[in-house]
Amino acid sequence: MEESSKSTQELAMEGQKHLENTIESAFQILNSMNHELCNPNLWSPPNPNTITNGNGVHTNGVDSDSNNHHSEISGGGALDEARLRYKASVAALRSVLVAIPNSRKAKAYDIDPMSTDDMDAEKLEEHASALRKELEDKNKHLKLLIDQLRELIADVSTWQSPVAV
């Protein structure tokens, strides 16, 4: 099913899945970085041309910032894999976020407001008709009760009247 034909709820569920994947990938990136930084065996081996200056700092005549930048770009296998997963999940999440407003617009065009109003009017007319019928039935019942009350009052007044002999 293409994203424009998905409902907003389906897109939200898909977006939540991509968000969870993004968070998991970010966690893996941090975990991989922590693992690489805490494990000296994973650090790049010293260059044989490295010279120690008087301060105990290794130099090899090459700018140390460019070496650090190169190692940041290359990274470890797990780190690179986590980065790729993160980028893919962020891209998928962005596409879902872009599709949500489009889905709402498409849904708005699909629903004809006139047909909705007509359906609402029909339902209201049916409900009004049912209420009228119920009112008629209750009025008939009330009329019957009033007639019975009149008869009862007539009987009671007959019993209470003095008997003329």
Rank of each mutant, 00 (worst) to 15 (best):
His141Met: 12
Leu11Thr: 12
Leu37Pro: 03
Asp117Tyr: 08
Lys6Thr: 06
Asn49Ala: 07
Thr116Gly: 00
Asn34Lys: 11
Thr50Pro: 00
Gln148Pro: 00
Glu125Leu: 02
Ala92Ser: 15
Lys123Gly: 02
Lys105Asn: 00
Asn67Cys: 05
Ser95Trp: 06
Gly61Pro: 03
Val165Ser: 07
Glu81Phe: 03
Glu125Gln: 01
Gly75Glu: 08
Glu126Gln: 10
Lys6Ala: 09
Glu126Pro: 01
Ala82Ser: 06
Lys123Thr: 01
Ile23Asn: 00
His70Gly: 12
Asp117Gln: 07
Val156Gln: 02
Met114Thr: 12
Val98Cys: 09
Glu136Phe: 13
Glu24Asn: 01
Asp80His: 03
Leu30Trp: 08
Leu144Val: 02
Asp118Ala: 01
Leu152Met: 06
Asp65Tyr: 09
Asn67Arg: 14
Lys87Gln: 09
Ala106Val: 04
Asn53Gly: 01
Asn41Arg: 12
Ser103Gly: 04
His18Gln: 05
Gln9Ile: 15
Trp159Glu: 10
Val96Met: 08
His35Ser: 02
Pro46Gly: 05
Ala154Leu: 06
Phe27Glu: 02
Asn68His: 15
Val163Tyr: 09
Val96Trp: 05
Gly54Ser: 10
Gly75Ile: 02
Ser157Met: 08
Asp155Gly: 07
Met114Gln: 08
Leu145Gln: 12
Ser157Pro: 06
Val62Ala: 07
Arg85Cys: 01
Asn39Ser: 13
Leu37Gly: 07
Pro40Lys: 06
Asp155Leu: 09
Lys138Ala: 12
Arg94Ile: 10
Glu20Gly: 06
Gln16Tyr: 12
Ala130Thr: 09
Ile23Pro: 00
Ala108Gly: 08
His70Thr: 13
His18Lys: 07
Ala121Leu: 11
Pro162His: 04
Glu72Cys: 14
Glu151Gly: 12
Leu144Arg: 13
Pro45Arg: 10
Ser74Glu: 14
Leu124Lys: 10
His127Cys: 06
Asp155Thr: 13
